[in-house]
Simulated assay, not measured.
Amino acid sequence: MSEGIYQFMYEGSRFADLAMDSFMLLTPDTSISSTNNTITFDSQIDHLAKINVCWTDMNNFSPTMVYSYFSEGWDAYVTGISREQLAAGDNFYVTPGFYKPQFSIRNNYVEMREEGDARQFTTGENTVFYGGENITAKVELNKYTYLPGEIMTITPTLKDEYGNRFLSILNSTNNWQQMTVEILDSSNQVVYSRSNTPYNSASVELPQNMLEGIYKLRICSQYPKPIEAETCFTLSRNIGSSGVKLTVGTPGNLYANTLTVQMLNLNTGEKINYRASNLINGEVFIPASEGEYQVYINTPTQDGPKAIYLRDVSVPGEYVFKSSTLNKVNLAVTDELGNVFGN
């Protein structure tokens, strides 16, 4: 290996009487050169941190295997010990330092990790707790006022009794467990619902036909036990300083219900393709960064032909596209003899 400063890690085990001692040993930063190429690990028991892992069953959720991982400044959780090993009297020792525990619980499979910064494990006995009946949940949003069509980023958090966060859950029938996300209006009626939402994060595009008001967002999980969490947000139809609002009419003094929009940023060349349906009075809200755009709108009409608009707009802004500005265009195809195929 090249000369330089390195940190080395050793994973191993040894039998002591009827039990087995497992180790994860780390060196301090070590200089490697042509005159120094010996790596020394301190494996003396009274110099190490002994880790005890205590699991409490969750709502009759009793795993057949629990594996605990610990990392210290590495990209992955690099070593661990199973519940069965600990129950059998095996011991687990690490070089004292700051570690972040993560737990992999198999059949019922769960991944959990401690929240916050890595915690310090010192020389002597150290105990890690996880599991328990008191499972809690909360949900946070990236902001709390939205426009129709905006992307809402949802961060759910499920924790066990000791504050460890659930990362993923596989139940005893080998199905990955996910949450349901619901949006409820002021009458507590569900106006949006989506299942199969991951435990770590999710995003929802808010429907264009949502009315102004205060809504409740709720997450629901059935595993490892039924649990809910909710928060509130405000839906505004006032564009303010964010995005663009287009009101699109169609012939017959009607409003568009479904349309396709293409926006070209005249400064950067960025293209935005957007489809919307179930519009209220032809209003569509499109998230877009500030700038000058050329807008192309394509929407069906009641009598069959499509209405097409082309216009320059500024973002943020509000624009009305009136059907009175449209011209009806008849198209015909002829062959080389002038025969008309259709119009």
Score class of each variant (00 low, 15 high):
S241Q: 13
T95W: 02
L310C: 15
E283G: 06
I32V: 15
A288F: 00
K328F: 08
I308P: 02
R106W: 14
D17W: 09
Q178W: 00
L259E: 01
Q102T: 01
D75N: 08
Y6K: 11
T247G: 01
I151R: 12
V313K: 02
I272Y: 02
S221T: 07
F92I: 11
P198H: 07
Y162S: 09
E212G: 13
S195Q: 13
E318T: 14
L266P: 01
Y215G: 05
N281F: 04
S186G: 02
V53N: 07
L184N: 05
G132H: 08
Y69T: 10
F61R: 09
P287I: 00
Q222A: 14
Y274D: 08
N265D: 15
L211F: 09
Y109C: 11
N142A: 05
N209Q: 09
Y274S: 04
E125W: 03
F166D: 01
L246H: 00
N108R: 14
H47F: 00
P148S: 04
V313W: 06
L18R: 15
F233L: 03
Y293I: 02
G317Y: 00
K306F: 14
I280H: 05
S172G: 10
V340W: 00
V340D: 11
A49Q: 04
E230P: 04
K322M: 10
V320D: 10
T325L: 12
C232T: 11
D312I: 13
Q294N: 13
V315G: 04
F61G: 01
K225N: 13
S193T: 12
V248W: 08
L26C: 10
R119W: 12
N142G: 09
M58I: 12
E182C: 07
E11V: 15
N36F: 11
S68Q: 06
D75T: 09
S68I: 01
